[in-house]
C-alpha cells in the first residue's frame, strides 16, 4: 500500500540546508496499525506531512496505492488527500462555525458527493465514533474527546486508504485519549490502515508496529505482539 524508498527532504534556510529526512525506506501494508515515534526534530512530522501529501519529498520514491505521488500535480494531490487520506490532528482542526455533521460532510463536498449521500455517510461515520447524539452541535459545544471523535469521523468518511493521526491524543485527558485509541483500534480491526504519530510510549504501545525516527532517519522499526515496550 505504501512504499517509500530513498526518501529525502531538505529544507533550505537561506544558504543553510537542513536535511530533515535522510534516505527513508519504509513499507506499510494494508490493514496495519503503525505508530511513528521520535523526539521533536527527529523528522517524524516532516515524514507525516509527506505521507499525507501535504508536502513533497526532495527526492526518493513514494508510492501510495500504486500511485507515484511525486509525479502528481497539485490539483491531483488535493484529490489524493481527499480520496486516500484521512487526517486526524492534535488540535482537531474542525471548522468552528459549522456543526459536527457539517464538519464531517466537508471532505465529501470536495469529493462532489450529493447532499443526500453526504448526510447519510456523515451520519454513519459519526455513528461509528459513537457521536450520534451530538451531530448538530458546533465544535465549541463539544468536549475535547468528542471533538476528536468528530475529526475521526471526518477522516474516515471518504473511506480513505490510510488514516493519518498526528498526536491525536496530545490535547486530550487520559480518559478521552483512551476512548480515541479504542476507536482507532476498532477501526483497525475493521480493516482500516492507521498511521499515528506520537511521542507517548503508552499510546504507541497500543499499535501493532512502531517506527522510530531520530535525526531524520529510521532508527528502529519493529512489530509489537501486545507487550508494552519502553521507549528510549
Amino acid at each position: 500500500m505504501i512504499r517509500i524508498e530513498g526518501l529525502r527532504k531538505v529544507y533550505k534556510n537561506g544558504s543553510i540546508e537542513v536535511e530533515a529526512l535522510k534516505n527513508i525506506n519504509v513499507e506499510i501494508n494494508k490493514g496495519e496499525f503503525v505508530a511513528i515515534m521520535g523526539p521533536s526534530g527527529s523528522g517524524k512530522s516532516t515524514f507525516m506531512n509527506i505521507l499525507g501529501c501535504l508536502d513533497r519529498a526532495t527526492s526518493g520514491l513514494y508510492i501510495l496505492d500504486d500511485k507515484k505521488i511525486e509525479d502528481l500535480a497539485d490539483n491531483v494531490l488535493a484529490e489524493v488527500r481527499n480520496q486516500k487520506i484521512g487526517f486526524v490532528f492534535q488540535s482537531f482542526n474542525l471548522l468552528p462555525r459549522i456543526t459536527a455533521l457539517k464538519n464531517v460532510e466537508l471532505p465529501m463536498i470536495y469529493a462532489k458527493v450529493s447532499a443526500k449521500d453526504r448526510r447519510e455517510k456523515a451520519m454513519h461515520a459519526l455513528e461509528r465514533v459513537g457521536l450520534t447524539d451530538r451531530v448538530h452541535h458546533r465544535p465549541n459545544e463539544l468536549s475535547g474527546g468528542q471533538r476528536q471523535r468528530v475529526a475521526i469521523a471526518r477522516a474516515l468518511v471518504n473511506n480513505p486508504a490510510i488514516i493519518l493521526a498526528d498526536e491525536p491524543t496530545g490535547n486530550l485527558d487520559s480518559k478521552s485519549g483512551y476512548e480515541v485509541m479504542e476507536i482507532f483500534k476498532a477501526l483497525n480491526k475493521e480493516g482500516a490502515t492507521i498511521i499515528l504519530v506520537t511521542h507517548e510510549p503508552e499510546i504507541a504501545s497500543q499499535t501493532k508496529r512502531i517506527i522510530s525516527f531520530r535525526d531524520g532517519e529510521v532508527i528502529d522499526d519493529r512489530a509489537l505482539e501486545g507487550e508494552l515496550v519502553e521507549y528510549t
Partner: peptide, 16 residues
Amino acid sequence: TREIGIRKALGARPST
C-alpha cells in the same frame, strides 16, 4: 488561514 489549511488537507483544490 487555518480554515484554508483544513480545507486543503481535506482535499480542496487550490482552484476551489
